[in-house]
Amino acid sequence: MIPEPFEYHIPKNLEEASRLLAQFGGEGKILAGGHSLVPMMKLRLAAPKHLIDLGRLTDLKYIRESDGRIEIGALTTHFQIQSSSLLKEKCPLLPETAREIGDVQVRNKGTIGGSLAHSDPAADWPAAILALAGEIQARNVSSSRWIPASEFFVDLLTTALGGDEVLTAIRVPVAPPRSGHAYLKLHHPASGYAMVGVAAQVLLNEARHIESASVGVTGVGPKAYRATAVEEALRGKAPSRQNLEAAAAHAAEGIDVNSDLYASAEYRSHLAQVYTRRALEKALERAHGK
């Protein structure tokens, strides 16, 4: 499989990358790990005239903690996140999500920034970043802004990034005490993408009831989403099986559910409910363990 020809650019820094992106307009595309973009180029579903490779900007590969938040550089690979001891301690939902992505080789090259910017409707990161109420940094030549995850995913393969903006970092709050997390996924049997993926974080109050829950769902609709009706239904509730089940029933509420050869919309909605309940159960179990 041979992609269409393109011109290849290696910017020396982020400023140059933003400048090139602005200069090429719709004909330029950023290359990070390339594990979403290159397959699309091989199938000729994407044919950018200019490829701007950030691969050599190693200062975009980092994981650090400051002011109660974790910040991750856009070029950090899934494997680096999966194996980060800082994250395992401070934000374990991220390594748990990372290990479910693709396979070893994909995780060695694929990056969190690339995956989020691509916004595949069945990618894993969007669910986790939504559940953590993360923010995504976008920069162009003259300015930089943080976009809340809840506003970042706009539609199928479409994000809030402007045509001249480069995704440069992600930040999420450190997991609070008395919280628990889980990412549960049903793998597509061939591609490994999520048929359904649910990321959950729950916070318990002193009475060990649910203070708040946040649930990110991927694979179900045209874009990943926060299951707000599930979250509302759990606020202040005792973590009983009955309450979890009743809340999880709202997992695909108001969503235009995907239907394909592997799962009808009806089946997928059911999966979303089951995986939401299981993810909540696992997250609660972990919160209680603390």
Partner: peptide, 27 residues
């Protein structure tokens, strides 16, 4: 498979296993 799934093209690049069908030589 040429679609990043089968792993037959796996090589080590700077010590890491990669699927060489999903990288450009220039990378």
């Amino acid at each position: 498979c040429e679609t990043s799934l089968c792993g037959a093209c796996t090589v080590l690049l700077n010590g890491e296993a990669v699927k060489s069908c999903t990288l450009f030589a220039v990378q």
